[in-house]
Design a protein around this nucleic acid. Structure first.
Lengths: 152, 152
DNA sequence: AGTATATTGAAAATGACTTTCATTTTCGAG
DNA sequence: CTCGAAAATGAAAGTCATTTTCAATATACT
């Protein structure tokens, strides 16, 4: 099993790039995250750890982390690009609660099968896909129901 | 069957807004479109028809058209918001060719069924969803195969 | 018609990136 | 090591889609 830092360093080398403390710091912090982090999140986490890395460098490094396959870019509908782990993480889709912002990850063999059928039908060669469902999570539905009952 | 202009005007009135020639022009041009149009596209089409509507107004009006349910916002991964017809148009998903930009629309009962199962499993209340597949359309695959054969 | 209120559009602002460029760092060759 | 070519950094400026501002204008109730 190849270590994530190894993958990153190999990629850096294979592209003729150089290893730097900033890149190591960004990768390090990213490896400690879960879920979906924005460049802003990353920059804040780095600052909290007293790691001073410029905004532009965080951007550039996150792009590298995505390019080498360790992260996947995710864009919901707020105009912010987020990154989630891709290495050793099963691909999944998202249920995004538009109230509280929670993101539930899901998978479905049924959907995978249906997708294969669609791709065959159109002769389409898939590189990537995303299936995002927007709505209310169970908790936010309950909150809403509760408040409307009390107010009535 | 309610006319689209009627729906828009009713919405305008219900929100205490006013009818203007610019709004009518934007709606008119939008009703004549197919597929996925950006604000830029709309603005260009309006100009071609000698309808001078400011950029900001086109933006504002497209938002209204979406809000009243006539259009749906679509965002692929180029940072541009596009609008597609939603009224009297079956909901569908997209196969986006990253080479030529073509967008194939698809539907699948299998996926719809699988989605229902997922929603029930997590108790999630869906408002909207999107399923976008990125890759190469049949034609672009052939072009690629042809060129590599010839170059070899 | 009169008037309160919404609309328009040009220009400025916003916000998420991206690029520029002078300075600093890295790393392979000697 | 130590040079030096080449890449990286980061502050600031630039992009680019979109949004807001605000003075001038249009709309639609009385």
């Amino acid at each position: 099993m190849m270590d994530e830092r190894q993958i990153f360093n190999d990629y850096i080398k294979s592209e003729g790039l150089k290893g730097t403390s900033q890149r190591a710091a960004v990768l390090d912090v990213f490896l400690g995250t879960e879920g979906h982090v924005s460049v802003d999140d990353m920059h804040r986490m780095l600052s909290r750890r007293k790691l001073k890395v410029g905004y532009a460098t965080v951007h550039r490094t996150m792009k590298l982390i995505a390019q080498c396959g360790l992260a996947r870019q995710v864009r919901f509908n707020d105009g912010i690009t987020r990154f989630e782990h891709q290495y050793m993480h099963e691909h999944h889709h998202h249920l995004v609660c538009t109230q509280c912002g929670k993101v539930i990850e899901f998978n479905s063999d049924r959907i995978d099968d249906a997708e294969k059928i669609i791709l065959r039908k159109y002769g389409f060669l898939m590189h990537s896909h995303r299936y995002d469902v927007f709505g209310l999570c169970k908790e936010c539905q309950n909150k809403k129901a509760g408040s409307s009952v009390k107010s009535g």
